[in-house]
Nucleic acid binder design. Structure first.
Lengths: 328, 328
DNA sequence: TTGGCAACCTGTAACGTTTCAGTATATTGA
DNA sequence: TCAATATACTGAAACGTTACAGGTTGCCAA
């Protein structure tokens, strides 16, 4: 910037103001400075700005490096980068592991002022991280809703609707003894899913086959084994609703371990985030959840809050696609 | 730090030096300063350090947000974060898309001095990005090797060995008309894979069924269709070697579209980065590639170079597992 | 006694930016 | 004509850190 000041014959203050379109700079001067800046490829020094203003131009995505389903994470990252490309923002990935308090990374970010905005996932109904960030006034968005009576930006997939549609699709195929492979217990969307499932059961008159011990963050082997066990009982379900593609692979394996056939003895409706399940078994019924869109929405929400928008207007819910059968 | 200076009754300079174990500081003073620093939870201000020293404490992972296979990316990220946890480094993700010159993001990072080290993937034999970074003296590591006669840190999976082992495994099952689903043309490991495949064909006396138009970065539908076409010809292959799990799903679908059966009419050896293929079809033969390890190795390499190690010593090659059949 | 030297500590400046509190010049109103 | 005011610009200070170039003190040898 000193170079710019020298080249234009102005003071650094004037240059600084001219570059950010301050009102008290003459129109011609402004244009001249901006032209020269473009010419020599001036880029504001991030450290200088950050030191002076406290603005980091950084968004942090806080991830659990053990639980998070893999494909899901890269999609979110891509979605976020799509939105922040063309802004001065950088994306930093802040990890935490099972052994740590999930609040740790958030506290670190806030205490060191390392980010202007934060995105968290694995959101809980009563989420200490959201509460903490609200208290400390740092803009954030959650992937998934909370339920604390506090308002903040979020993006969520409508898992209540998903579970409901899934049950109705199964009922439509004459299935009426249904089991649910739930999201991780404790996360908000566990509740949404379970409620959607239960309400649709009432509507359709189908009944639930308890399968409570199984959730999608268990290991493939676990899920497979428990499914096989369940399917060998005489009161076995004739339909499954699965909240994640990886779990669905395990469920199907378990079904087949028990000597049963998908589409004949049992139907399975599953969420998926990439179009792979139909390659796996054509008989599967799928609902698509687009995590790239989620990433974009979350980024937009945080940037919006940073930009001064009302947090209450930065909430979005993504509606599930229909339940889709295979189409060759 | 000013606070620390006040509390200890020392000058800021002394505090600064005491904290970084400079030799001209008395042992007791050093301990005293460090104790107080711990007590009040002092954290160096990144902007201050960066402005003064130019050190960003940032590693940038440069990603193609269109090509990169999804699951692969999150594994690498997790691997990287594992290594930089416990260092002062932050990981930033720098994206670029198909439309851009892959050199763009690298040039940006270097010109703005936004990172102390860079990790790139989709490495080419003659890679302008590696050349550029060498010229500009910024530490980096490549996922995959180059072939320019220039020495730099890398981590690579031994795809020559993979393709060779795959061919030998197929030959061992009596398969002798083999097709290869190649890596993306132009990347270094394309050549490694093709050579490993060709050399092992010679060794075993098997022959190649040309399938050159198909590589793993094509769409699922494309691969599936071309595979089905190929399998309907009378000179069809009886074995496939596939460089990626997603492509393998498509290949198997194509095989079945043509009315053939895996394990009877044809065998397929595939790389995979998570243990899912055997849930898909038990008849598949798999070789595991661990991208989390790749991420860790890459991070270690960059940090090593930043730390002054000889780039030539920061190269690693990961040996493929055996070719594994399904074991219930 | 004194000069030299080691051990330990310190003030100031600088990194690049923005903000505060101006200054100089031109313009306006009476 | 003169004061008041608007317009266009500017220097200095500050953000937190480190490096440079010292400054004191105490000890030892001559």
């Amino acid at each position: 910037m000193k170079t710019l000041a020298f080249m234009t014959g102005l003071g650094v203050t004037t240059v600084s103001r001219a570059l950010k379109d301050a009102p008290e700079i003459g129109a011609e001067t402004r244009r001249r400075v901006q032209l020269v800046a473009k010419q020599i490829g001036y880029r504001p020094n991030r450290a200088g700005v950050r030191l002076r203003t406290g603005k980091t131009n950084v968004i942090s995505l806080v991830l659990n490096t053990e639980h998070e389903l893999m494909s899901f994470v890269s999609d979110i990252i891509y979605g976020v980068t799509e939105v922040i490309a063309g802004t001065p923002y950088h994306l930093i990935v802040t990890p935490y592991s099972r052994s740590q308090d999930p609040l740790d990374p958030v506290r670190y970010l806030v205490e060191t002022g390392s980010a202007d905005g934060v995105i968290i996932s694995r959101t809980q109904p009563n989420d200490p991280r959201a509460r903490y960030m609200l208290e400390h006034g740092i803009p954030f968005a959650t992937h998934g809703r909370t339920d604390m009576g506090l308002v903040h930006p979020y993006h969520d997939f409508d898992n209540y609707a998903f579970a409901g549609e899934a049950v109705r699709a199964l009922a439509g195929k004459g299935r009426n003894r249904l089991a649910l492979v739930t999201p991780p217990v404790g996360l908000t969307y566990y509740g949404h899913t379970v409620n959607g499932f239960a309400d649709a059961l009432s509507d359709t008159g189908a009944s639930e086959v308890p399968f409570n011990t199984v959730s999608i963050d268990q290991s493939i082997e676990q899920i497979r084994m428990r499914t096989a066990q369940l399917m060998r009982r005489k009161d076995r379900p004739d339909g499954f609703v699965s909240s994640a593609a990886a779990a669905t692979l395990a469920v199907v394996a378990g079904i087949e371990d028990a000597g049963l056939k998908l589409g004949r003895d049992v139907d399975v409706v599953s969420k998926q985030s990439s179009e792979l399940l139909h390659l796996f078994r054509r008989e599967l019924l799928v609902v698509n959840e687009n995590f790239r869109v989620a990433g974009s929405e979350l980024a937009r929400a945080v940037l919006g809050w940073i930009g001064g928008a009302d947090p209450g207007t930065l909430q979005s819910l993504s509606t599930p696609s229909e339940v889709l059968p295979y189409r060759g």
